[in-house]
Design a protein around this nucleic acid. Structure first.
Lengths: 211, 211
DNA sequence: ACCCTATAAGTAATAAGATCA
DNA sequence: ATGATCTTATTACTTATAGGG
């Protein structure tokens, strides 16, 4: 037993533990990629790369078909799984794994979309809030003016006919402070830049992958 | 002292399993969860256990040390990497990969936190907006009352002092706020306030959008 | 050499249904 | 039937590889 064996060596063995007979999806032949500039790719792992197929990386066509199927239905009954597997030349297990991972990815993406949706809503609500705040300021000013006017008219009425205690109805409104010191309501929170265009992908983005 | 525990034996075993993962990848001892439940049906389709193997699954100790190191610094200089690797009996490459994956996970988690932070903020802003809306409504009512009052007083003044347009002057003052166009309170009445929350979604309805 | 993203695949825990004692 | 156990599939998390910068 090579008990002192260096870990470097163990690095890759085979990994073809999968017992799949005719599975070879390995080495995706990238179309139009004649530049193997990875020559510095040490032998450590490269040694076996030639020896046995590392599989990994489904071909573009395989992925396309899988995506289409995923698009029509995220779940995968074993019948469909087997059909797909034979169509693609993959092990049913691989198809199942692909779907699992795809679902996980989809979920993540959905979460991201929800985040950005929430963010947009948040921003728009913030804008709305600012608008309301300034509206409020405006109204307070108008109210203040109106109160002044009422005072003035009341004085006139009083001076004209010495008794008329009629107008004291909206007095409570006038006692609001004259809102002078505080403008900051409007000034900050203006960093919400309005980017109305949605730049993120929505839902069907996978379609573009094979279109 | 957390480090006084003797794990020599375990480490040894782990190392061994790294090289010969004979299935003994040491399941993490879940604290207080002794559920035997021998649901282990590995061998069935996984004849992989037969010949060669697949290491996988770091031991709890290894993960602990890695976590501690990650906690103090997310980046990994090669010196530290090598030290860690030999301490853990792992390949330096594995340590690097572990950090890589850990960073990715951390990033995801951070994003989630940001989401929930944003959500809280959003909710509070929504509440604030509602508050502003009702305040606005109140003010408009007051303003409307004030306006009526002005009308009433104006009539009084007019009737008291016959034809003299004395109060029209004061009207001018009220109608001419510095930066507001009009004094028309009553018109804006319905397009400004009271848009009950139907243009944004509050709560978590979007949760069940489901594609 | 290192980082990052995307992806493949292994592992564990769990849930729902089928089946057996 | 009832409950234990097997079956199968799904989710969540983990380890690892490929490839771009």
């Amino acid at each position: 037993m090579p008990t002192t064996m260096n870990n470097q060596v163990e690095d890759h063995m085979v990994l073809f533990s999968q017992l799949y007979p005719g599975v070879y999806t390995q080495m995706v032949p990238q179309q139009g990629e004649p530049k193997p500039k990875r020559r510095r790719k040490k032998n450590k792992s490269g040694s076996e790369a030639s020896a046995l197929a590392k599989k990994r990386k489904l071909s573009a066509e395989q992925v396309n078909l899988l995506e289409i199927n995923f698009g029509s239905e995220h779940k995968l009954e074993s019948e469909r799984k087997d059909r797909l597997a034979s169509e693609l030349g993959l092990d049913p297990r691989q198809v199942a794994v692909w779907f699992q991972n795809r679902r996980a990815r989809w979920k993540n993406k959905k979460l991201e979309e929800e985040y950005s949706t929430l963010k947009k809503q948040h921003d728009s609500v913030v804008v709305e809030k600012c608008r309301l705040e300034s509206e409020l300021l405006k109204l307070k000013e108008q109210l203040s003016d109106a109160e002044k006017e009422i005072q003035r008219l009341a004085e006139r009425v009083d001076s004209a006919s010495s008794n008329s205690p009629s107008s004291s109805l909206s007095m409570e409104a006038a006692m609001d402070p004259p809102f002078l010191g505080e403008y900051r309501v409007v000034e900050e929170y203006d960093d919400v830049f309005y980017v109305p265009q949605n730049n993120y992908i929505n839902g069907m983005e996978w379609m573009n992958l094979y279109m």
